[in-house]
Simulated scan of single mutants.
Amino acid sequence: MTEQSRTPAARRVAIVTGGSRGIGRESAERLASDGFAVVINYAGNQAEAEAAVTAVTAAGGQAVAFRADVADEQAVAALFDLAEDTYGGVDVVVHAAGVMTLAPLVDLDLDALDRMHRTNIRGTFVVDQQAARRLRPGGAVINFSTSVLGLALPGYSAYAATKGAVEAITLILARELRGRDITVNAVAPGPTATALFLDGKDAETIERMSKMNPLERLGTPADIAEVVSFLAGPARWVNGQVLRANGGAI
């Protein structure tokens, strides 16, 4: 081991958007346990973000929090600036931030559609644009789609449409980064026990959706974080793919 490899700058660095709660937080904590220094991006809840940082540092890891609207290009540039200034660079971007409003297409409020478009599509584009400009060789971009694209569940038309755009961005960016030694993939969870999924669903609906896969349970944030860890670390030959982490639902 060289003297240079012993320095703090040699530590790999991950930015996790939506990292203060749910799958994002679990992914941030998992990457920190894998040895990454983590920058936890959050949209509004500072207390949750600080709790996530505390959880990482209490376990012996390194983390800082930064507030940024993922659809705001200046705020996202500042997020990447912070990661570079604090830890020396960026190696992995986990873009877990997203919003979801459910309703049949005929009833969906168009303001909700616009909000999902801004966060889920524009946000992915803005975050991936900075990642493409700044990631070091050997890096990885991990976007988030949804298995609802395959399940075609009623009520999810607008949300699924935004995630279809995420998949298109993911597959094309992987090819645009030819020669950079950077992988670009998306994780597409099935029904997962997060606040985003559980909000507004009654017990009967949750039970029914938990039985959709052969394992007959909801996914957990830890299940999804395990996939993120794989794509961020050893999975260097997985590129330009959508990994459907749903217990075999489709």
Rank of each mutant, 00 (worst) to 15 (best):
V90C: 07
V90Q: 01
V90G: 00
D91P: 00
V93E: 00
V94R: 03
V94A: 10
H95V: 04
A96I: 09
A97C: 08
A97R: 05
A97H: 04
V99F: 04
V99L: 11
M100G: 02
P104L: 13
P104F: 09
D107S: 14
D107F: 14
D109Y: 11
D109V: 11
L110E: 15
L113P: 01
D114I: 06
R115Y: 09
M116E: 15
N120K: 02
I121Q: 09
I121M: 10
I121T: 10
I121R: 01
R122E: 09
F125T: 10
V127T: 09
V127H: 00
D128L: 12
Q130H: 14
Q130M: 14
Q130P: 00
R134V: 12
R134H: 07
R134P: 02
L135Y: 04
R136P: 02
P137I: 14
A140Q: 02
A140F: 03
V141G: 00
V141T: 09
N143H: 08
S145M: 02
T146N: 03
S147M: 04
V148W: 00
L151I: 04
L153R: 09
L153W: 04
P154M: 00
P154Q: 07
P154V: 05
G155F: 01
Y156K: 00
Y156R: 03
Y156Q: 08
Y159G: 01
Y159F: 13
A160E: 04
A161Y: 03
A161S: 14
T162Y: 04
G164H: 07
G164V: 06
G164R: 06
A165C: 11
A165T: 11
A165W: 07
A168T: 15
I169A: 06
T170V: 12
T170F: 05
L171P: 05
L171V: 12
I172R: 13
L173A: 12
L173P: 01
L173W: 08
E176M: 12
R180H: 14
R180E: 11
A186L: 08
A186C: 14
A186I: 10
V187Y: 02
V187K: 06
A188Y: 06
A188W: 08
P189S: 09
T194A: 14
L196E: 15
L198I: 11
G200Y: 10
D202Q: 09
A203W: 07
E204C: 06
E204V: 13
T205N: 06
T205R: 15
I206R: 13
I206V: 13
K211M: 10
K211Q: 15
M212G: 13
N213D: 04
P214A: 03
P214M: 03
L215W: 05
E216T: 09
E216Y: 06
L218R: 06
T220S: 15
P221D: 12
P221A: 08
D223M: 06
I224P: 03
I224S: 03
A225T: 13
A225D: 07
A225V: 12
E226R: 14
V228W: 02
F230A: 09
L231R: 08
L231I: 11
P234W: 09
A235R: 03
